[in-house]
Write a protein that binds this DNA or RNA. Sequence first.
DNA 1: GGAATAGTGTCTGTAAGACAATATACT
DNA 2: AGTATATTGTCTTACAGACACTATTCC
Lengths: 267, 267
Amino acid sequence: MTTKPYVPVSDEERDFLAAYDPSGFPSIALTVDMLVFTIRAGRLAVLLIERGGFPYKGSWALPGGFVNPDESADEAAARELFEETNITVGDEFHLEQLKTYTTPGRDPRMRVVSTSYFALVPDLPSPTGGDDASQARWWAVEDLGLEGNCTEDSPALAFDHATIIRDGLERVRAKIEYSPLATKFLESSFTLADLRRVYEAVWNEPLHPANFRRKVLSTPGFVKALGNKGESKTGGRTAALYEEGNASLLHPALLRRTVNTEEGDDE
Amino acid sequence: MTTKPYVPVSDEERDFLAAYDPSGFPSIALTVDMLVFTIRAGRLAVLLIERGGFPYKGSWALPGGFVNPDESADEAAARELFEETNITVGDEFHLEQLKTYTTPGRDPRMRVVSTSYFALVPDLPSPTGGDDASQARWWAVEDLGLEGNCTEDSPALAFDHATIIRDGLERVRAKIEYSPLATKFLESSFTLADLRRVYEAVWNEPLHPANFRRKVLSTPGFVKALGNKGESKTGGRTAALYEEGNASLLHPALLRRTVNTEEGDDE
DNA sequence: GGAATAGTGTCTGTAAGACAATATACT
DNA sequence: AGTATATTGTCTTACAGACACTATTCC
């Protein structure tokens, strides 16, 4: 529980810290941890990096890094996201602060305060290997063993990153109910079936196509119809294309049936 | 935008910082800022403290303080809340992390990373003067001039605390829709009219008593009926008493009509 | 034509919003 | 009695969920 003295483990880190505070090692390091979510093969996935050194060597961790002295955590998060995925901040995807983790000892090297961010991005062409030698890949969140369904294939997660991923999942699952965030998982034009598959992947439950359609179209500002039509992929009628609308909140909201609360004896 | 050298402004601060990092002043200070909300005279109010020294002398600031080296921000927030209001952490009120503010230069003295928390407490007996000589009082959020209704009576707010208060208001207003948090503003037993007045104060809009009642009672786990009845205060039929239920999420949610989103051309 | 998906129409149950009516307290 | 609030009842409208049906594409 007490803060241990810091021992640099790589030249990059040593250099960074020397530049960070010329007078010595800082008492507190501020970092960002990135939850980069996407939909791959119909499943919600998160980007993880295999750690190559102490601590948690061989475990999988969220990408992230130090906040520079002259930048805010928001700016650091956008920078890290670009470094990891080559995506530039814009309207194409969503980046939002999630929560800050401060428990003493969460990093054995020193006191590290980490502010987590989550990003929602469309399916990226490649597994987006990081610029450093570390191994990066997408993990389907189902396969992480976060909800008791832990198997021998579930990866070990470094630090308190399992908690961060759980918190992020909860936020994303709740937020697509009342905001048009689900469109951020898709390219700029999409079909209503694409949008429905996003909801099904994030909530992990099937939705009724006809009712979903009626609901989305009756929510003002959620999506906007484009004139053209897409191509049929597996046979079947060609679907119309839509783009993101201009609403920032959905009213009325799309409601899940499955709500993770204990409802007991009422009244 | 660049971080200025730190100049201690009080003996307490100097002592704290010396103890905080014996090798010198820390590069980053981690603090908590507390949004303590309550309902006073039918209006949503927040606790503010008048600053007695540099910077922002004479402005009003959120209560808060440094996170000690051996505690988490959660623990620091609970400690600060007790120091400000003499309320002990428990089921009686709500304490939750809001957001972390990191912009360089937000405190002119040094790089201060502040994690904000909001607490919902019942109306407290006294204005709860702080233990130090600083002036503390409740401010109705309407009177803070946060939404353009700024008058000459609106207080000057220190640092980026106007932003923090706005963020907190948004969170609380949204969260009482789908969680039973509104009961945290009340004593352990309350009438449905009391609960309705909480919603009316937080949302600043009148609610229909009969429909509110039916809605609350039909939401499983929101409130639980007590056998006894309260006293009539202003004449009129005596209302039945209720206590908090065991639901953690309201399903279905109580919906505001007024939603602060720009809804444009749909479809 | 057959299979597959997109999209429309319709029925039903539930619940919200408005409002009237009744019940119970205080003066 | 008169007033004020609590509580119940009822009517209308909106919408979610279910499901049948039509439309359009590929094979």
